[in-house]
């Protein structure tokens, strides 16, 4: 209505606001996308770190006990001397007790139980050996039942290890 030269106040016109909003929205869109991607990446990394912790804990507990064990009862090599894998591991520990490690896929847990020599039910250890482990396999790899390989995996993270039983039966 009035010529622009008559305007006395400094301010922001509608066009400037909208153009600024457009530029802002583009920048925020790019930043938001990058932010969400980074957040997702960080969440994935944190998840991986948690999985690694679970693997280390479970590995340490099992290896500690297995190293001092005397023999592996199950799994054992196949008749044709090929390796054999299972989600359960039964062994005789240093004290002669029969111990079993077994994996529960639904709970993603590794549990330990003591199998009595005589009548009676297995006694499950209260605290699980490992948690957050999606898959576990014990592989018998030696004819003398003194080597057991472990393979754990969760969400694309893996752990490959082996334990040699130092004590004889």
């Amino acid at each position: 209505m009035f010529p622009t030269s008559e305007r006395r106040k400094a301010g922001v016109t509608l066009v400037e606001m909208v153009v600024g909003a457009m530029i802002l929205s583009i920048i925020f869109g790019i930043t938001a996308r990058w932010f969400f991607m980074q957040r997702e990446y960080q969440q994935r990394l944190t998840h991986i770190s948690d999985i690694q912790d679970n693997f280390r804990r479970a590995n340490w507990l099992m290896v500690q006990e297995l190293q001092m064990a005397r023999t592996i009862i199950w799994p054992r090599l196949n008749a044709d001397r090929s390796i054999r894998s299972d989600t359960k591991l039964v062994f005789k520990d240093f004290n002669g007790q029969i111990i079993a490690y077994y994996h529960i896929p639904a709970e993603q847990r590794i549990r330990r139980c003591v199998i009595p020599n005589g009548p009676g039910n297995p006694v499950v250890t209260a605290r699980p050996v490992g948690e957050g482990i999606a898959s576990l396999s014990f592989t018998a790899a030696s004819i003398d039942n003194r080597l057991i390989s472990l393979h754990m995996s969760t969400g694309g993270v893996h752990s490959l290890d082996a334990v040699y039983l130092t004590n004889s039966e």
């Binding site: 509608l14 929205s25 938001a32 996308r33 969400f36």
Partner: peptide, 23 residues
Amino acid sequence: KNIVIGIFALAISVPIVVYFSSS
């Protein structure tokens, strides 16, 4: 004129924001 330019700017920016926001 201002309203038209504003609508035009919004029409460009909204799809761009949506595109960049989607992972």
